[in-house]
Amino acid sequence: MAEVFARDTGWSQVYLSDEERAEIEREAECYPRREGLCIEALRIVQRHRGWVSDHSLAAIADYLNVDAAEVESVATFYNLIYRRPVGRRVILLCNSVTCWMLGCETLRTRIQAELGIDFGETSADGEFTLLPVTCLGDCDHAPAALIGDRHHHDLDPDRIVALLRQSREDE
């Protein structure tokens, strides 16, 4: 970690792609100050790399000219920024109140049986990470989950397993 928090210049050259930098610049037009791009930059990097490594974090800090500790404090605050590697697809299983009443725990158990993972874990083949998520706003079609960037509602254990098998086949 020590090397990460040293304020070397040049991190962003090495650890941000041209594409990532271009995307950050596009977002820069929407905000009056560059420091304000922190969350955007984290989201952009994560979209490209799946998660935010220490190197990416230092690169963002360098690029926006803010302290790496500051970027780290922001990165760890937000639920949807991953500071550890995740699987190719993240399953966000809603476990808020309505989904809980309508059986999200049985979905969790069934996913465990199918993939061998509980909340916070990634399947051995690196395909899926399972995470809880707060109310997805699908309460009229509970229980619900977000797999990758697709919402699925009115789930039951058989359907979620079918969806997981299906999504393994889709590229």
């Binding site: 808020s96 109140v97 707060t134 706003g137 009229d140």
Partner: peptide, 8 residues
Amino acid sequence: DEMEPGAF
């Protein structure tokens, strides 16, 4: 932001 549980 609509993250209140049960609000949709």
